[in-house]
């Protein structure tokens, strides 16, 4: 089990305000400021998704940086690798937009820039101490913690249960 911090989701706290999405897009913009990012071309895009379930549950979803990451195995151009901080990252320079990673990701969290033909996903904001989405979440539905630290408070494994069943 790694000692690196991960982004965990407490779905019961999410209000669906989408502030995380805005913060994410801004962090992944050129200018890093909302009011100017909004005028950038191409517009920056978010790597966080907030899904909705009947009963009005809101479910933030983002790259889990899986231990056994199907995308990492599947990449046909060598663009996907694991970083020093255990994040699974896509190197836009090497990505050729074949979308194989999109096809194998069971979470549906790899985005596509169709114009540039590049895949993108959560990179846990390498330039920041706390990822932008976590910092922005007004209800602390997103937390940045080590697995250990998080299970001490509350363990809601949204990440692993799916993948343990994935072959490999």
């Amino acid at each position: 089990m790694s000692n690196y911090k991960e982004i965990f989701v407490k779905t019961d706290k999410c209000t669906g305000c989408l502030t995380c999405k805005i913060a994410c897009a801004v962090e992944h913009s050129e200018t890093k400021s909302l009011f100017s990012a909004i005028r950038e071309s191409p517009r920056p895009v978010s790597r966080v998704y907030v899904e909705w379930l009947p009963g009005n549950a809101k479910v933030p979803v983002l790259c889990r940086h899986c231990e056994e990451a199907p995308c990492l195995n599947a990449c046909i151009s060598g663009a996907i690798s694991r970083s020093d901080t255990n994040a699974v990252i896509t190197d836009a320079g090497k990505c050729i937009g074949c979308w194989t990673c999109v096809m194998v990701c069971p979470y549906g969290v790899i985005g596509r820039d169709q114009t540039l033909a590049k895949a993108f996903r959560c990179d846990r904001c390498p330039d920041r101490e706390i990822p932008a989405c976590v910092g922005a979440c007004p209800t602390q539905a997103l937390v940045y913690e080590t697995v250990d630290g998080f299970s001490k408070t509350k363990r809601k494994t949204v990440s692993r249960e799916l993948l343990t069943r994935e072959g490999a």
Binding site: G97, C98, W99, T100, V102, M103, Q114, A117, G167
Partner: peptide
């Protein structure tokens, strides 16, 4: 380790700016 097999068809690509996936 058991190999869970593979879908005979499992292709993703983009041709002529048209992305497609067949599985």
């Amino acid at each position: 380790t058991r190999y869970t097999g593979t879908l005979g068809i499992m292709n993703a690509t983009q041709v002529a700016k048209e992305p497609f996936v067949a599985m």
